[in-house]
Design a protein around this nucleic acid. Structure first.
Lengths: 132, 132
DNA sequence: CCGAATCCCTGATGATACTG
DNA sequence: CAGTATCATCAGGGATTCGG
């Protein structure tokens, strides 16, 4: 940061600049890279079950056990953690129904559906480009 | 095309279908999800240093030590591994110059530059959407 | 200069058992 | 049904050293 220039709007200005085609500094500080929101999102998408859960929720809203059944091999623990992470990022909404027994529904938020657009474009490129 | 049967052309047909808006099976087999090329690419992008290395190479070709200097905190080992992974996926090209001492240059391949398009779109959305 | 080989450690993930 | 708690495991990543 600050190579003589005074106006740096965000701590992650460089990554942001990079994202849109700008230049990176001679040396990119670890904190800056780690703090970058783009880094955060890409890391989260790279987590073991995130992509699949997102795809299923893109289809329609699901109950917890419904997801658990559709995702072969996932543990209850990891499904909970994955959903929680998505919820914390505002991509998924959690709704509790005070029935007996209680039911919990997960669905994509508006932001989650928006994310699907560039994400689908990426997936689309991979498919077109012929399996990596 | 579809006389009621549910056969699949590729092992990863489901994920491919999902990528473009299709439906996923009632239960997604682990092998299928793990074998999916989209899963592979997203996971790779999520690796600790991949994004930053890609951004730097998007700027211009770099020598090994040049990258090592620009990426704060990366170990020689991880830089090698990251570059090798990108090379194996055909995103980065490695060129050895038989000078003394030997020099190695890394640059994006055509495929690598193509990946930057959807990837930039994703980064762009993140930035616009307001830092995650 | 570039990178392989080795050792080690922490964080991510899995298995199982237990509650509101 | 939908989690939480706990313990075990494993892979990603870092430090160091050696070789072409």
């Amino acid at each position: 940061m600050s190579d003589g220039n005074t106006d740096v709007p965000h701590p992650d200005a460089h990554m942001v600049a990079a994202a849109v085609g700008g230049r990176l500094p001679g040396r990119v500080p670890t904190e800056e890279y780690e703090a970058c929101p783009v880094t955060h999102v890409v890391r989260m998408l790279g987590d073991k079950w995130t992509l699949l859960v997102l795809m299923l929720l893109a289809e329609r809203a699901h109950r917890f056990n419904e997801l658990h059944r559709r995702v072969d091999g996932i543990s209850q623990r990891m499904l909970t953690r994955t959903l929680r992470a998505l919820e914390d990022d505002g991509l998924v909404a959690r709704t509790v129904f005070p029935t007996v027994p209680p039911g919990v529904e997960y669905e994509l938020t508006e932001r989650g559906r928006e994310l699907l657009v560039p994400l689908s474009a990426l997936a689309d490129w991979v498919v077109r480009d012929r399996a990596a």
